Simulated scan of single mutants.
Amino acid sequence: MEASATAAAKHEILSAFEFRHATKVFDSSRKISEDDFQFILETGRLSPSSFGFEPWRFVVVQNPEIREKLRPFAWGAQGQLPTASHFVLILSRQPGDMAAGSDHIRHMMEQVQNLPPEAAEGKQQTYDSFLKVDFGLKDNERAMFEWGARQTYLALGNMMTAAAMIGIDSCPIEGFDKAKLEEVLAAEGIMDPEHFGISCMVAFGYRVNEPRGKTRQTAGQVIQWV
């Protein structure tokens, strides 16, 4: 890439980061096109994950009745649930699915990554050691779930950045009662709690009001060179 093209790309990316803000209320009269939203979802799907095991599922909630059922248990989404063009629940795999010998892990290695048997066996052993020794996750179900949930935030960030780059607003949301929301999702047949739990939510659409200026610590306060 030529220097001028590189500089233009850098400017475009930083402009998107300046544009993005946590939008609390969206213009409910404006809808994201199908093509644009498929693009946003694709950046989530293509996001990296540990060992490439993709512990996520993206549930796009467009049904107004379902959104209203979620609202009593999502205090951080009171403005977004009724106004967002698209509202996404990001689910994370439960510990059983992320165990080294699980059906999901075998499916990922054999059917998705297309590893030959000897390579899959070696990767499974390395992964099992990672869970037991390196990160000490094996016997801690909550830590195991949160490790998967942390990976979903890679997809979350990529989707929000991609949206900002094409002029679409977003808001990541953690303000919710996890247990109550999961009860609703299970009762509605949206989520199988044996395999998934909710990690976070994100709303997409178009802003109603312009945000205040972005506030961040300086580079000197958050970056350390050694």
Rank of each mutant, 00 (worst) to 15 (best):
A143C: 06
F135M: 12
T152C: 15
G76I: 04
R20E: 13
T218W: 01
G76E: 08
W75E: 10
T161W: 03
V202E: 08
E182R: 01
F26S: 02
K180Y: 03
A9Q: 11
M108I: 14
F39H: 13
Y206V: 13
V61S: 03
F196D: 11
I168D: 02
C171T: 03
A5S: 11
R212Q: 12
F73Q: 00
A120N: 03
I173Q: 06
F37G: 03
G76L: 07
G205R: 11
I32K: 04
F53N: 04
M144H: 14
Q78T: 12
L154Y: 10
S15D: 15
A9R: 09
T161N: 10
Q80P: 01
W75C: 00
A99L: 13
F73K: 01
M98G: 01
H21T: 10
P64W: 09
E210V: 07
P172K: 07
Q221F: 03
A74W: 00
G148A: 12
T215W: 14
E210C: 00
H195G: 11
P116C: 08
G79T: 10
I168R: 00
Q221Y: 07
W225L: 14
Q94V: 03
I66G: 00
L89S: 00
P64R: 05
S170D: 05
H195R: 14
L181N: 13
M144Y: 15
T23H: 02
E18M: 05
A119T: 14
G189P: 03
G76W: 08
G44Y: 08
L137V: 07
N209W: 07
R30H: 11
D134S: 12
S29G: 08
K214D: 09
L181V: 15
Y127W: 01
Q78D: 09
A74T: 11
G157V: 06
A84F: 11
Q151M: 12
Q94F: 03
T83I: 13
G76Q: 06
I166H: 01
I223D: 02
I66M: 10
A219R: 13
I90M: 14
I66V: 13
E68C: 02
Q78Y: 06
H104N: 05
F39T: 14
V88G: 00
L137E: 05
S33M: 05
G148H: 05
E54S: 03
F145H: 10
H104G: 04
K138M: 13
E12L: 09
D192Y: 11
D36V: 02
E188D: 05
Q94M: 14
L156E: 13
E118G: 07
D103Q: 11
A84I: 09
F204D: 01
G148N: 12
R216A: 13
Q80D: 04
V208R: 15
K31I: 11
L185D: 02
D139S: 10
A186E: 09
G148K: 06
S102R: 05
E183K: 12
A143S: 12
K123H: 04
R212H: 10
R30I: 14
P211H: 06
Y127L: 01
